[in-house]
């Protein structure tokens, strides 16, 4: 049976190995040969402008896209293979949340442990409520996703990923719709998970502050190519004008169009 995990496996840190990953949709090549190693327990932040292929890259890690070329392995498991993927316990926080619209917030969170019968009802309830509280969602438990704002949806998506108790967490722009305070909370959560359980995290974001604060290493991606991988400090010192441009966009404050706001 496909249901392999019936009890919560002890958490183990997972390493990611991506080798010359290429992906084409029709004639347009979105990923142009990406190679990358993420060590177990590492927090890796992938940055890049919109449309550079970050989300597509993340889907490959979750096994939702099949590489046109190259290999994606998580802890030596080929996630592109439907039969092998379930061996990896990973959670993906989708860019748009991907909440189950027919289920309440509570049921969205409880679905995974219930389906896999990880805990009894009471424990599930406790764990769900704890995750909701972490993201200040306790009042929204009985709401359905349609009643939530964009930021709340994102938080529910993160809470849902936490309840899954994964060994690898993939975040697709976790802070994009959140206020700075909540963004800080997310940063703390990511850091705590690594502290507590050694969870490996791969965060896709164009939030410079987030990348620089929590990232062990940062990758810069542009038009399907990985320009650089380095520590936040290393990245900051890079000379590549494309990276400089991305990290510190030269905004001409003397431009008359900004006058009013300035």
């Amino acid at each position: 049976m496909p249901e392999t995990d019936t009890s919560p496996a002890p958490r183990r840190a997972l390493g990611i190995s991506v080798e010359n990953l290429r992906k084409s949709f029709g004639s347009t090549e979105v990923l142009k040969g990406i190679s990358l190693e993420v060590k177990p327990g590492e927090i890796f932040v992938m940055m890049g402008p919109s449309g550079s292929g970050k989300s597509v890259f993340l889907k490959h890690l979750a096994g939702l896209e099949i590489p046109t070329e190259g290999k994606v392995r998580i802890d030596d498991i080929n996630v592109a293979d439907d039969r092998e993927r379930p061996k990896v316990r990973l959670a993906l926080v989708f860019q748009a949340g991907a909440l189950f619209n027919s289920l309440s917030v509570f049921d969205n969170l409880a679905l995974y442990p219930r389906e896999h019968r990880l805990y009894d009802r009471k424990t599930i309830k406790e764990k769900v409520e704890k995750a909701l509280a972490m993201l200040s969602l306790s009042d929204a438990a009985e709401k359905i996703p349609a009643e939530l704002s964009g930021g709340m949806k994102k938080r529910v998506a993160i809470a849902r990923a936490l309840v899954m108790e994964p060994d690898l967490l993939l975040y697709d722009e976790p802070t994009s719709e959140l206020d700075p305070i909540m963004a800080a909370t997310i940063s703390e959560i990511i850091a705590d998970l690594r502290e507590e359980f050694g969870v490996t995290s791969l965060v896709v974001s164009h939030d410079r502050d987030l990348a620089m604060t929590i990232g062990d290493r940062v990758g810069i991606m542009q038009e399907g190519e990985l320009l650089a991988i380095d520590t936040p400090a290393g990245i900051r010192q890079m000379d590549d004008p494309r990276i400089k441009e991305f990290l510190n966009p030269a905004i001409d404050l003397k431009n008359p169009r900004f006058k009013r706001s300035a």
Partner: peptide, 12 residues
């Protein structure tokens, strides 16, 4: 809206 994808990542 990627709910199906979410299910797949959840091994459901």
């Amino acid at each position: 809206y990627q709910e199906v994808d979410a299910l797949i990542t959840m091994n459901i």
